[in-house]
Amino acid sequence: MIYLLLYLEFVKVGLFCVGGGYASMPLIQAAVVEGNHWLSLSEFVDIFTISQMTPGPIGINAATFAGMKVAGPGGAILATLGFVTPSLILCIIVAKLFFKYGDIGPIRGLLNGLRPAVIALICSAGLGFIILSLWNEEALPARPLENLDPIGIIMLIATFIAVRLKVSVIKLLAGSGACGLILGMLGKFF
């Protein structure tokens, strides 16, 4: 039962994710964190982080990881298959149309509407990630100023500057992992 649910959730993710790996993040989050409470937001952000540092397409990595955490190896396989099922069907239909007519007509309108929607969802996910970084909570706590995590503030500013300076994703994540470890240990000992 969990397998079928997992497969169907990822069919939805695959169907509505337009615009590459980052676009799939808010949808996977909605499916596994908010929709079914299979994972916490913190676990989900870990998945997203690790997916970017390992070889392979980010979306597939994240689907595999989430499926594995929810229901083991079978879950990993079904989540991944669910994710690519809509792609497989739609891409073959569109490839046929393209070879026949050279254009894909009304489908373009649909996709043009989905693209801004995905931008909004990425913004919304980003806001959730900021709250997690600064407060270690999924939602804004009751007394925001007192509960701020100082390590989170320093790290967030530093990493954002690094991103704007176009440091590569791998270097950035490896570096921020090392800084987090050092700051965490300093915080423990002083």
Binding site: Y22, M25, S42, E43, V45, D46, F48, T49, I50, Q52, F65, K69, I119, I122, C123, A125, G126, F129, I130, L132, S133, N136, I151, G152, M155, L156, T159, F160, A162, V163, R164, V169, L172, L173, G175, S176, G177, A178, C179, G180, L181, L183, G184, M185
Partner: peptide, 30 residues
């Protein structure tokens, strides 16, 4: 490996740092 090590204190520190990195990346994408 994640399941084995995610609750280790030091691994958590590193993951916390990487969470901030991932946040910066997604904010930049947005």
């Amino acid at each position: 490996f994640y399941d084995l090590f995610a609750h280790n204190e030091y691994v958590r520190y590193a993951l916390k740092g990487m969470q901030c990195g991932a946040t910066a990346i997604i904010i930049n994408v947005a």
